[in-house]
Amino acid sequence: MSNEQSILSIPISPETHKDVWVYAEVRHDNLIPTVFELLFLGKKLAADLNEKLCAVIIGKNVSQHAQTLIDHGADKVYAIEHDHLEQFVDETYAKLLTDLLLKEKPNKLLLPASTIGRSFGSRVAVQANTGITADATELSINKEKGGLLNATRPSFGGTLMATILCVRGHRPETATVRPMTFPRATPEPGRKGDVVKVPVDLSGFKPRERHIRFEPEVSQEIDISQATIIISGGYGVGGANGFNALHDLAKTLGGAVGASRRAVDSGWISYRHQIGLTGRVVRPKLYIAAGISGQIQHLAGMNSAETIVCINKDPEAPLMKLATLSVQGDLFEILPAINKELQKCGFGAK
């Protein structure tokens, strides 16, 4: 049977699928923080369904994390463990997770909307013949529709929200969940749960995709996708040196530095820092925008931040109107003043 036929012949039988699964992404031996957010969310969904919360974990020596996952709410942990799985490789990981899904038949599957989760979730969804929602920010159980997953997500750069339903019985209903959207599960040390070590047989499998090396980001800065505080600069920053004022404040607050597309395109800061439609989407507690007018493409990347502070010379800038708190003025005067004020209050002290 061809691959196409075998996908199309996967039976649609929602009644045989049970439990809420969370993909517990491991990056360089550590569970990524979003996993705990997924456990928080998954626990709630599982309780609403009266089903179990399970975590699935793939990699080398990953069963070391099983108890942590149980402590944070998982009733059962599936560990797919093998020495060849040290690094994430789409093809191999997707094959192993698909095999497990087809065997264990979970009802829901949540993955982090991280680089890995978004890339590999969508491959798994096709291989397992099911529906997937990308980058969901609101998830709930639809009780009127027999417990379907309501997955709501921003589209068109955040200007439109759409609620997606998997109405034709495909399971598991899959969603990647935007990082920093849900609180993290609180641990209950010593909680009991099952650990299932999934047998892995890679003997007949000839991978056509190989991880060659990892080049770590050299700067010691906090990554914007995981930061709770972001100081972001736009065209008004005026040049690479202008970002120093932002770095100083970020250091005091323990935050990360972001940038608008225009600042990145002008070569003042690297693409890694770009926030917006063509950059990355962030959801910090505090977002301080300095010299950013607030084009819709930028707003798409940060408008779900909890608190937005905007500093701009132009009082008519769109972001000045959207911001929780706005300050009209020269960022090179205001930012150092804020920094000084914070240091007076004891911020940034070691």
Binding site: R27, F88, R208, E209, R210, H211, F214, P216
Partner: peptide
């Protein structure tokens, strides 16, 4: 591949 913490270099057939 651009990752949150750096670059993964991968080879594919």
């Amino acid at each position: 591949r651009l990752m949150e913490d750096g670059i993964d270099v991968l080879e594919m057939d």
